[in-house]
Simulated assay, not measured.
Amino acid sequence: MPDPFLLLIAAVFAFAGFVKGVIGLGLPTVSIGLLAVAMPPAQALAIVIVPAIITNIWQTFAGSYLRDILRRLWPLMLGTVIGIRLGSGLMTGPYARYGTLVLGVLLVVYGIFGLSRARFQVSPAYEKWLGGPVGLVTGIVSAATGVQVIPSMPFMQAIGLEKDELVQALGVFFTTATLALAFNLTDAGLLSVATALPGAIALVAAFAGMFAGQAVRTRMHPDLFRRWFLVSIIGLGGYLAAETLVRLFG
């Protein structure tokens, strides 16, 4: 892999880690979205997978809500794993050429939803019944794009998790989903020695960005940062979708 490409990976993951340090999420979403400008989503995910797993494991145990999270979210996580396995060929099979288009549309939807501040409420009596189907859809979308935020993120907000509990829940959920994606990549032969150096650079850069983001979080207004982050995500998604449409049908 040429040196400029490694520098691109370091810059992307430093920024994605910074975003995660400030708002508690966004590393896979940002890094896959930015890397998809220069490579297919499957190749981007192969680089993202190790940093995402390690940083999410760290986030999983950075809190005291783990038992309650597992009790409430196991249907969501189980459905997501099943969906990822069912969609194992979407990122590398005959539909792989549409992956960047789907990713772009997904980023636009994610950004618009975040900016809208729309909030739903799910009664505790229904959260386990809804968790499985929401997870299944999330898993299939994730298998095609590598991104796990739609519709899982709105669902976790809708069941009334407190702020700190939500941050830890995201770590637990993303760890589970990313491990399932790792099996898909292994089956497709995309995790190999060739991804070791880019993955190591990505991991170091992501942690450096996370520590920087955590350091400035107290001095930065998180809502303002989050707003501009979501606007940027919409712009990136729109570019990816438009560029793919031109390449496919232009």
Rank of each mutant, 00 (worst) to 15 (best):
G160D: 05
T178P: 00
T178H: 13
A169D: 00
L170P: 04
T178N: 14
F174Q: 13
G160E: 00
A180R: 08
V149G: 09
T145I: 06
A169L: 01
M156I: 06
F173M: 14
D164I: 00
G171V: 04
I150K: 00
P154N: 05
V147W: 14
L181V: 13
L170K: 03
A177R: 10
F174R: 13
T145E: 03
A169S: 10
L179W: 15
A169R: 13
S152C: 08
L185F: 09
G146C: 11
G171T: 07
L185H: 11
P154E: 03
M156W: 12
V149R: 10
K163C: 00
I150Y: 11
V167L: 01
A182V: 06
G146D: 11
L179C: 15
A177G: 13
T176L: 12
P151C: 02
P151L: 01
F174K: 05
T176M: 14
F174D: 10
F155K: 01
V167N: 05
T175K: 08
Q148T: 14
T186F: 14
A169Y: 07
L161G: 04
A169M: 09
V147M: 14
L179F: 15
T175C: 11
V147I: 15
L166H: 00
A158N: 10
V167H: 00
V167R: 08
S152Y: 14
A182T: 11
E165V: 02
T186G: 14
V172I: 07
L181G: 10
A180T: 05
G160P: 05
T176H: 15
N184E: 06
M156G: 02
A182K: 08
V149S: 13
S152P: 10
L181H: 06
T175H: 13
V172E: 12
A169P: 07
E165F: 07
V149L: 13
I150T: 06
V147N: 11
E165W: 09
G171F: 05
I159C: 04
A158L: 01
L161W: 12
T145K: 03
Q148S: 14
M156K: 05
V147F: 13
P151V: 01
V147Q: 10
L185M: 09
F155G: 00
A180G: 02
P154A: 02
V172W: 07
L161H: 01
L185C: 04
D164M: 06
E165A: 05
I159F: 07
V167Y: 04
E162N: 03
F183R: 11
K163A: 00
L185Y: 09
M153D: 14
I159W: 12
V172R: 14
L170F: 11
F183V: 15
T176P: 03
I150M: 15
V172C: 09
S152D: 10
L161S: 04
T175Q: 13
F173T: 12
E162V: 00
G146M: 08
V167I: 12
A180Y: 08
L185N: 03
F155S: 06
K163T: 03
T145R: 07
F155Q: 00
G146T: 12
N184V: 07
V167T: 00
Q157K: 11
M153E: 12
V172T: 12
F155M: 01
T145N: 08
A169N: 01
G146V: 11
T178M: 03
A177N: 02
P154V: 04
G146L: 10
L170Y: 08
V149M: 15
T175E: 08
N184K: 05
M153W: 15
F174C: 05
Q148G: 15
